[in-house]
Simulated scan of single mutants.
Amino acid sequence: MIKEWATVVSWQDGVAQVSCDVKASCNSCASRAGCGSRVLNKLGPQTTHTIVVPSAQPLVEGQKVELGIAEGSLLGSAMLVYLSPLVGLFALGGVFQVMFGTDLAAMCGAALGGVGGFLLARGFSHKLAAREAWQPVILSVGLPPDELRVEILSSEAR
């Protein structure tokens, strides 16, 4: 189970809307100046993701919850997203090379195969996302933000 903490944005009728912060993968690496991942992280303006999760327990805005998703569903979706365009790229590129015998045809076939693999992954993702095993679940719930109170006793009260 892969776990991540999120903040409740709203809760209504057994459905919680939660916000997860995007964590950059490279903040402490020694090669930050030449890192491609760092550049890609800076390009995306989105720093939070908002998702909907079922929750029978009433939640309060600002409350922290721990979300979990099965490793199998994460690996399956990653394979679908990355491998289907790659397989389409190589397969159609090879077929066009054999059929037409030119590099230009192979390049066009590879482009068509990559786009086709992407569209195939996009079509399957909606069906797979409907599976209950692929949905994130709330594993634990933190205290509401207004419940925790810390009192400091003065030295006179002791």
Rank of each mutant, 00 (worst) to 15 (best):
T48D: 07
V39W: 03
L89I: 00
G88H: 10
F100V: 05
G62K: 10
L89S: 02
S37E: 06
G94S: 12
R38Y: 09
V98H: 12
A91C: 13
S84R: 06
G62F: 10
A91G: 06
L86Q: 13
L80N: 08
E61Y: 00
S77I: 04
H49M: 15
L40T: 01
L83W: 08
M79A: 14
G94C: 06
E66F: 01
A78N: 09
G72W: 11
S25F: 05
L83V: 08
V52F: 07
V98P: 00
V60F: 12
L89V: 02
G72M: 12
L92G: 01
P85A: 12
G34L: 05
E61C: 11
T48C: 01
V65H: 03
Q46N: 05
L92W: 06
E66K: 10
L43W: 06
S25D: 07
A70W: 02
V87W: 07
M79T: 09
Q97S: 11
T48I: 01
V53L: 00
Q97C: 03
T47Q: 13
L67T: 03
L59E: 04
V52L: 09
G68F: 06
I51K: 03
L59P: 02
I69T: 08
G72F: 08
G76F: 08
G44D: 13
Q63K: 04
T48Y: 01
V65F: 07
T47M: 13
V98I: 11
G34W: 01
A56W: 02
V53N: 05
P45S: 15
R38K: 14
G93D: 08
I51A: 04
L59V: 00
H49G: 00
E61D: 09
G62C: 05
L67V: 04
C35R: 06
C29P: 01
G94E: 00
G68P: 02
N41H: 14
F96S: 11
V52T: 14
G36Q: 14
I69F: 00
E71N: 11
G36W: 05
L74H: 02
G68C: 10
Q97K: 09
V95H: 02
V87F: 14
M99L: 14
G36F: 11
G44M: 11
A33Q: 07
V95Y: 04
Q46A: 08
A91K: 04
E71I: 04
L86M: 15
T48K: 10
L59D: 03
G88K: 07
S25Q: 13
A30K: 07
V87H: 09
A33F: 05
Q63L: 10
K42P: 01
P54Q: 02
S25A: 12
G88M: 07
N27F: 02
Q97E: 14
V95P: 05
P85F: 14
L40R: 13
P58A: 09
P54C: 04
P45Q: 15
E66T: 05
A56M: 03
H49K: 14
S25Y: 10
L75P: 02
T50G: 02
F90L: 14
R38M: 15
V52R: 14
Q57M: 12
V81R: 06
V52C: 02
V65C: 06
K42C: 00
L75N: 03
L75R: 04
A24L: 01
G72H: 11
S84M: 15
L43Y: 05
